[in-house]
């Protein structure tokens, strides 16, 4: 790989008409409405922007500042006591580059919902470790793979990649053959792992 760092340096495409998304189609989701969405809409009138269902799976889109509060509300008031997964999706062309996805499950209701939020590159989001302990490693993995930082995380550091590694592999601008040549040379004593 010629220049692994070029990704950051690339000038952004001047945020060309953001109103016209390039993607030809979007997810054919239908509105989601039930007793839970009504309660949530009442509790967070300005914070939740969308309630949708796709393929029978419900999700809501919230503003990043409200996520911890919504997760906590769902845990305490609606029995969503199990955070099954927390992950991210990278959309480099979007101004708010990352989708963070929280997958919640309720044992009492036997229901699964997803909370999605969008954050920009370099923006910090509050950690949910205070609500769900399992988020500790999950947030570390998201930080490791995408470089998204979580505020007030008890121990935010890399988990799968080596500590001194540069770059975040699951970003779309990180090539599949790319690696941190400096780290490889210093630690393995070879020019390249390829």
């Amino acid at each position: 790989m010629a220049d692994p760092q070029n990704a950051e340096a690339k000038p952004k495409p001047a945020a060309a008409p953001p109103a016209a998304p390039k993607a030809p189609a979007s997810m054919a989701a239908t509105p989601w409405e039930d007793e839970l969405t009504r309660r949530l809409a009442e509790q967070y009138p300005d914070q939740i922007t969308e309630f949708s269902t796709y393929l029978g799976q419900s999700f809501l889109v919230a503003k990043p500042a409200a996520v911890v509060s919504i997760v906590e509300f769902l845990k305490l008031e609606a029995d969503f006591d199990y955070l099954a997964d927390l992950t991210a999706v990278d959309y480099p062309k979007r101004s708010e580059r990352f989708d963070l996805v929280y997958i919640l499950y309720s044992f009492a209701r036997n229901e699964r919902i997803r909370i999605k939020t969008r954050i920009a590159d370099g923006e910090k989001i509050e950690s949910v470790v205070g609500v769900h302990l399992t988020a500790n490693w999950l947030e570390r993995e998201v930080y490791d793979m995408f470089g998204i930082e979580f505020a007030n995380h008890p121990d935010l550091k890399r988990i799968l990649m080596p500590d001194g590694w540069e770059g975040h592999p699951l970003r779309k601008d990180y090539g599949i053959l790319q690696m941190d040549n400096r780290w490889v040379k210093e630690n393995l004593g070879i020019e390249s792992g390829q």
Binding site: A23, A25, M27, A28, Y54, Q57, A84, D85, R112, R114
Partner: peptide, 17 residues
């Protein structure tokens, strides 16, 4: 089609999604 889904099964070790 454009979209997303989360599917999980009961693997021998727990929920595999």
């Amino acid at each position: 089609p454009v979209g997303e889904a989360y599917v999980s099964i009961e693997a021998p070790k727990g929920e595999l999604g």
